[in-house]
Each structure stands twice: as structure tokens, then as C-alpha cells.
């Protein structure tokens, strides 16, 4: 699989990572060699093998529907870059 420089920009955009032209060039060469390593996988015949998402073959536990949390807005918002009237502020979102 050959990765193009356009792919690098596309990935960076999806991941919301600003990238300069120079950074993209470096990323392109490094990612290409990493995908060279990853390519070893492609030759393996995995027909009929169940994908493994979790280390343990167990099922989800369920939490009872009760309220356990109390308001800690002040504590949590003390870490926020910008808040006003209890709201987190961001540049205007346009739909």
C-alpha cells in the first residue's frame, strides 16, 4: 500500500492535526516505512478467524440505573481554557 502525500494531509485533517508542508514530508516518509513493516501482515491467511477485540472472552457487566454523581462543575471547570456562566466556550460553531 503506497501512501501519498495527499493521504497524509487527509489523515491529518481527519485527526485534526495541523500539519505544515515540511512536517507532511517527514510524516510521509516515516509513515511509509511503518506501513512497510505493517505490510508483513497482509500475507497471512486469516480466513475463518474470528477477530479479537478484547483480551478476555467475557461479556459486558451492567450498572444499575441509579444516580451516583453529584454536581462538581466548579472543580471540573477549573481546568477549562475558557468558561462563562457555566458554559465551556469555543469559537462560534456554524452549521
Amino acid at each position: 500500500m503506497l501512501l501519498s502525500i495527499d493521504d497524509v494531509f487527509k489523515i491529518a485533517r481527519l485527526a485534526r492535526l495541523g500539519l505544515t508542508e515540511d512536517e507532511a514530508q517527514i510524516a510521509h516518509s516515516q509513515l511509509s516505512s511503518i506501513f512497510g513493516l505493517i505490510a508483513e501482515m497482509q500475507a497471512v491467511d486469516t480466513h475463518g478467524i474470528e477477530p479479537m477485540s478484547h483480551a478476555q472472552d467475557i461479556s459486558q457487566r451492567l450498572r444499575e440505573d441509579t444516580v451516583t454523581e453529584t454536581n462538581q462543575r466548579e472543580l471540573f471547570q477549573s481546568a477549562a481554557p475558557q468558561v462563562k456562566n457555566g458554559l465551556y466556550l469555543v469559537p462560534q460553531v456554524i452549521e
Partner: peptide, 22 residues
């Protein structure tokens, strides 16, 4: 009465971010 993945309340109309837990 609580959220799908947390124990925070789901009641409508609370002050902003007072029902948003960690």
C-alpha cells in the same frame, strides 16, 4: 434516571454543566 454510561442524572433543565460528571 442516570446516563447510559455514567451515574450522572438525566433530568431536563438543570443549570449548564451541573449534570456532566467526569
Amino acid at each position: 434516571c442516570s446516563k447510559i454510561f455514567s451515574g450522572a442524572p438525566t433530568a431536563f433543565g438543570a443549570e449548564p454543566n451541573t449534570q456532566a460528571c467526569a
